[in-house]
């Protein structure tokens, strides 16, 4: 199962990166979102998961003694990463439309043009 999640994070990462390497802004935006999903899954997977783990929701009176729990720290990191990914994607898109308004194009210059 960890293996499956790991493989999946690799797939998301590779697909996202392939699109991000394009010079077309629309492909890049999709690639960016795929890539951030891949990285989030990567972080979650690498934190591991003990067998028969419970969600990190404690019960009053028992505290953390009734383990094992999934690692809450990785989840907290990813939660904010998801939301910030959205904010970054929005900024990327705003730049794209601005670029398009200015130049009438939806791609950015590459190696051969500068």
């Amino acid at each position: 199962m960890i293996g499956l999640a790991a493989a999946l994070s690799g797939v998301l990462f590779a697909c996202g990166l392939y699109l991000l390497l394009s010079r077309n802004l629309q492909r890049m935006a999709i690639g960016f979102l795929l890539l951030s999903n891949g990285i989030n899954l990567f972080v979650l997977t690498s934190a591991g998961l003990p067998a028969r783990a419970a969600p990190p929701l404690l019960v009053e009176g028992e505290g953390a003694s009734r383990g094992p729990f999934a690692d809450p720290l990785a989840q907290a990191f990813i939660l904010t990463a998801i939301v910030i990914g959205l904010g970054m994607a929005a900024f990327l898109l705003a730049l794209s439309t601005r670029h398009h308004d200015a130049s009438g194009r939806d791609d950015v210059e590459g190696d051969d043009e500068t």
Binding site: A6, L17, G38, T45, S46
Partner: peptide, 14 residues
């Protein structure tokens, strides 16, 4: 790189 990421995730996950 995707393969590398998967390998790293798996290795640190287990």
């Amino acid at each position: 790189l995707g393969l590398g990421v998967a390998a790293l995730a798996w290795a640190s996950g287990i």
